[in-house]
Amino acid sequence: MKTEGFMVEWKRFAVHDGPGIRTTLFLKGCPLACVWCHNPESVRREPELGFRKNKCVLCGACAGVCPRHCHSFAGNEHRIDRSECIACGKCVSACLYDALVLYGQPISAEEAANRILEDRIFYEYSNGGATVSGGEPLLQAEFCAELFRILKKEGISCAVDTCGNVPWEAFERVLPLTDLFLYDFKEIDSRKHREFTGAPNERILENLTRLSECGVPIEIRMPLIPEYNLSDPDLIGAGTFLSRRKNITAVRLLAYHSLARSKYETVGHADTMPSVPAPSAQDMEHAERILSGFGLNIINTAKTEQNGKKEKWKNPNAIEKDGTGSGR
């Protein structure tokens, strides 16, 4: 039987989901419910209807095809009764203005692999590849493993972007096929972690500890949210924990922003995003300094110029020239 995944969307030319140019597949369903989540449409496991109000021209085509009469129009307002919606997608096909979108569609591993392979030349020249993200991709570990098996045969580098809150067995399924883990680290204090994400962090930390013994490179990703996880004790606690784990290639600091707020309205969820400003450049540098003090390789994405620590591109066909090389 073919393994099917349940996806939200594709992102091609993804340059922030691991090294190089990548294609990211966002899978649906997450065991956490972080208040600051930037992908609220990927949290629930069931399909959901998205509505982009600004694209709607009130043509009523959706109401004409909806079997449950969810769409209604009162004056200049298009209302959706989500309690009745079964996310059948009929209105999405009928909407010619792309105002309606269906989050959550099945995809086979083969189909996903073919989509990813379309851009293989860009992975080759950028040391990029494929990333599964979400949501929590390891809730669909079997699908990820199947997808990676196909991609590995084609020589494509594979990365998993995980929150870590899954049974260890899920990691074991993808471990032999994964080149890089992007591992979220949100908060060291379990009580606060539960408050912000809906779950304690013991399993997340334990999985990270086990994973760090497996020899696969791990890039830690820390979203930094003022008033939530940006205090000195938060950072020192994180630094202490992370500095004792092996195979951590880098810790990437991601400055919180609220640009995703409109997505909550689109998918019809209550807006939980913190009403705090983005961390300042000084906040970010402060965090960078504290964490660097633990000997960690920090990538501060708020800076325009970062330190390039990567191996440079080499022309495989180049003939060594006698010393004059670059001419400088």
């Binding site: 340059v15 140019i21 030349i121 950028s126 040391n127 110029e305 970062q306 390039g308 591109w313």
Partner: peptide, 23 residues
Amino acid sequence: PSAVRGEEGIEVLTAIIRAFIAA
């Protein structure tokens, strides 16, 4: 601009150029 920020951005740009030319 966010796609080409920093040193990594330069690598992305050269990768695009190289891949496009190679193909």
